[in-house]
Simulated assay, not measured.
Amino acid sequence: MTIRAGSGGFTLIELVTVIVILAVVGLGMVNFTRLGTRVFVDVTQRDQLLSDSRFLVERLNREIRTALPNSLRVTGNSNGHCLEFMPIRWSTYYFTLPVAPDTGTEAEVAYVTALDTLVPPPYTLQVGDQAIVYPLVASDVYETSDKSVAIDSVSAPVGGKVTLTFADTASFPQGSPSQRLFVINQPVSYCALADGSVRRFSGYGVNAVQPQLQAVDGGVLMAENLVNQLSAAAGSSSDDPFRVVPATLTRSALALVRLRFGRDAEVITFNNEVHLPNAP
C-alpha cells in the first residue's frame, strides 16, 4: 500500500477555519446564556419590586381604613412627606355620657360581644388610653382638647354593656349625633423619604404640630426604591405621595396615595383613593 505524503493531517487553513467556527459558536452560546441570565435577573427584580410595593400599599390601605375620623394630616418638604393618623383601638356606642354642663366620672358604653363569658373582651385597657367623642378637626385629636378624656378603668361586661371610668371629673363639650365613642392611644406615621425609602413610625407621642420624621428617628422600613419627586410643601404637587381630602356632608374623608417605585428603567405606579368609613 502506498501512502502519499501529507495525507494524515490538517492544513493550517483547515485548523484556522475550525477555530473560527468554534469561536463563533462559543460566542453565540455565551450571548444566549448572558441574555437568559439577564432576563431572569430582570424578572426577579421586577417581581421583588412589585411584591414590596404591593405589601406597603395593602398595609397602608388597611391601617388608614381603621383611622379615627378627622385624624389624618400631612406634612413634608423635599426631604420627606409624612401621613399621620390616629388608629382606633376600640370603637363603640355609648348609652350615657357626661356632656357639658353636666360633669361625671364614667360613661356606659355598648359591649359588642354577645357571649361575653365565652370569648375575650374586645377591649383591654392600656396605659395612655383616651376616650374621644365627636372629633371634627385634627386639633381635636392632637392638641389639648376636652373632647378626649383619660380612661382610668373598665368594668366587667354586664348585660352587654361596660362602664368606662375616667381619671378626673369629665365633661365632653358635646355628644356625637350617632352616639359614637372611640378609644385611642398613639398616632402612626407613614413617611416617604428623599432616600427612596418608606418608613412606618409609631410610639413617638402625640404632638400638636405634626412632626417631620426621618430615618434617624428610627421607624420600620416598609419599602425602598421610591422615585416620587417630593415637593417643598406637602400636597402642592401631583407627584406628592400623600394628600388628604376632608369629609363633606355627602362623603367620608379621602386619603389620596400616589406611590411610584422604580429600578433601572422599570417604574410601577400605585394610585389609591382610600375612603375612611368611620364617622364621628
Rank of each mutant, 00 (worst) to 15 (best):
S53C: 07
T44W: 02
H81K: 04
R34A: 08
P120E: 05
P122V: 06
T96A: 15
L27T: 08
V112G: 14
L49M: 06
L118C: 11
Y94I: 12
R59I: 12
P121S: 09
V39A: 10
N79I: 09
K161I: 08
A23R: 05
D140R: 06
P157K: 01
M29Q: 10
S148L: 00
D146H: 01
E143Q: 08
L27Y: 08
T165V: 13
F55A: 15
T163S: 09
R59A: 15
L50C: 05
S153M: 02
F40I: 12
F166A: 15
S148R: 06
E84M: 03
T124V: 03
E58Y: 11
G28N: 04
L49K: 03
L22Y: 09
E84N: 10
M86N: 02
E63F: 12
A67I: 14
F32L: 15
A131W: 07
G160I: 12
D129W: 03
P121L: 01
S139E: 13
F95K: 15
R65P: 00
L49Y: 07
P122T: 08
T96Y: 15
D152Y: 05
T92E: 14
L49C: 04
L118Q: 10
T44M: 01
E63S: 07
F166P: 15
V137L: 11
D42M: 01
L60N: 03
T163Y: 08
V154F: 02
Q48Y: 01
L68I: 14
V57C: 13
G128D: 00
A100R: 13
N31T: 14
V162P: 04
H81S: 09
Y123R: 09
V43D: 01
V109S: 11
R46M: 02
Q126G: 03
Q126F: 01
S78I: 08
L35H: 13
I88D: 07
S71D: 14
R34L: 10
Y111E: 04
R38S: 03
F55E: 14
E58C: 10
V39H: 10
L27P: 13
E108V: 10
V149T: 04
P121F: 00
V57I: 15
P101G: 01
A23I: 04
Y134I: 05
P135E: 06
F95H: 15
Y111P: 09
R38N: 00
S139V: 14
R34Y: 13
T75E: 08
E58F: 11
D146V: 01
K147G: 00
P101Y: 01
G36M: 03
V137R: 14
A107M: 08
R54Y: 08
G26M: 12
N70Y: 15
V133W: 08
L60S: 06
T105Y: 10
T117M: 09
L164G: 12
P98L: 11
L136R: 07
L97I: 15
T103G: 08
D52M: 06
L72V: 12
V127H: 03
A23S: 14
V127F: 02
S148C: 00
